[in-house]
Write a protein that binds this DNA or RNA. Sequence first.
DNA 1: CTGAAAGCGCTTACAG
DNA 2: CTGAAAGCGCTTACAG
Lengths: 335, 335
Amino acid sequence: MKRVSIKDVALKAGVSTALVSYVLNDRHTNRISKLTAEKIKNAAKELNYRPNSIARSLKAKKTNTIALLVADIANPFASQIARIIEDEISIKGYVILIGSSDENAEKLHQLIDIFLNRQVDGFIILPVEGSEKYILDLAKTKAPVVIIDRYFNNMDLPVITTNNYGAAYQATEHLIKRGKKNIGLLTFKTELIHLNERVNGYKRAVLDKGLINKSENIKYINETNIDVEVPNAIDELLSNEDKIDALFFATNKLALAGLRKLMVLNIKIPEELALITFDESEAFDIFKVPVTHIKQPLYEISKEAVEIITGMIEDKNLKFKPRVYNSKLIIKQSS
Amino acid sequence: MKRVSIKDVALKAGVSTALVSYVLNDRHTNRISKLTAEKIKNAAKELNYRPNSIARSLKAKKTNTIALLVADIANPFASQIARIIEDEISIKGYVILIGSSDENAEKLHQLIDIFLNRQVDGFIILPVEGSEKYILDLAKTKAPVVIIDRYFNNMDLPVITTNNYGAAYQATEHLIKRGKKNIGLLTFKTELIHLNERVNGYKRAVLDKGLINKSENIKYINETNIDVEVPNAIDELLSNEDKIDALFFATNKLALAGLRKLMVLNIKIPEELALITFDESEAFDIFKVPVTHIKQPLYEISKEAVEIITGMIEDKNLKFKPRVYNSKLIIKQSS
DNA sequence: CTGAAAGCGCTTACAG
DNA sequence: CTGAAAGCGCTTACAG
């Protein structure tokens, strides 16, 4: 089963490969005779010719391929972004190579290497903790890079993200307006800035509204041990004599673990305990009461990432400025 | 910013490109002098040389790339499979190109075309309704193809799936053993065999256990209109004088829409209405009561798909037999 | 032990 | 209007 090449088409049509290339790519067709063009098209069709993108890429030094490197493709947050990006970018004639770094900086490093060798035209990266140096090294190769969602400070790269600080502030403020006075926060123990910004937004709102920040109200969970630490943290937050009357989950994963725990506790929501969480989940609507959450602008982030990466590919000197999109607080019965 | 090629390395090391290729690929190294090998390795390192996979692919007629074409990457079912496949296949040195056909046969057709042109070494496909002919056309090109999850009859292709009929039978039987006598079923209006097998399993179990199949107990939902039709269907199922005492959801998407509806109804679960659903979801654990569900063997299916596709790539005449993995009924309080 | 050369399947500047 | 030829960056059979 030999693949048919442009040579076979040329042979069959009795012309040179150059003409075949021109006709099939619709170039210089004004100076090619109609008859020849017809012959070529027919030959191509009869032989069921398909152009070899690999050969074309080699010649053109462009693969029309973009690497999308996410922290975990099985996380709905990432898979939804992947779907939108895939849709948007295919309109522009690109294809997405997805890599899932499994929250592991070393794996991200490997993926970057593999995709550099594969000559992708650009990278859209949702970084993981500790991956800063690999991303900076990548940027040094002059490969176009766009960072989404998570980010690092002082990176001279296009960053597209949501207003983590502001959204957390708004959510906390909302709880306080509802009369809550002692708000717990569950977050990850991490150096990731976007998460720590959420903590900062929470703290600031507490302060601004005349409440006090108690360090024992913030629980830092190890990502790798969620299922044990989240229930424990909730037990602690609720067992203080000064127990919390509202709980803020900093991510969807934390919320899911937390809601599972709260299922088995006999607590009135929102009267005894109000709930609010970052991110969305198909689960939030079917909890005891639907859960108030912060809806991130996935569509805007994804679309902007596509715009910028394709823009950078076409114009290496493209100026960019970081984009911060606002999240939306979706108020439900849990608060 | 010129990319450094094997020529640059050869020049710097003062040898031919052939030697560079041999050394860097660890071939014929036994007949290359240590000194030369050192020189080459150093030159490559100093120049920060990276082999161009595209050029290699062109020469080798192998891209080490596999297309994974799913119905919807944003569906957790697909994104979990994607993650497992990505992990497994990277061990074997392949990279996954993901395409999401959005439950649209035409889009799947386009994706197949694009990926054929890109010379992927093989396809793992989760088909959509109406895509049978495109998949058969693809198979005719002799490209290795593995079908997962959904399938068509009489396709001489490796199909890896779960025991849809048996799992639905078991689930229905379980409900009947719990004393339920009038079981509703929500499924999609579709020609997809795997779903209709679920209906068949349900019907057979009803029959075998001495109950009667009532056509009004099965509701066929239009995929595109879930959020309207599911609540309506549930209203109907519950408003009969002879109303149902158990409800079986044929997929996770149907279950989610159904659970949202049941949230607002005042029904005792499982006493008045027992629930059971195909697939998993992070949501099922936090419903009023955790939901009994059929856990499909995602890991086994994914791993087997990787084994078969890589096997077929390495040996075009590989014999395969369809593999059916058993699902597992996870019994929770909803039944 | 090493190098010159062909070739993978395209595109494109050039010559006629 | 059309063709011969070079070249993208590799690999590899062959010759020495």
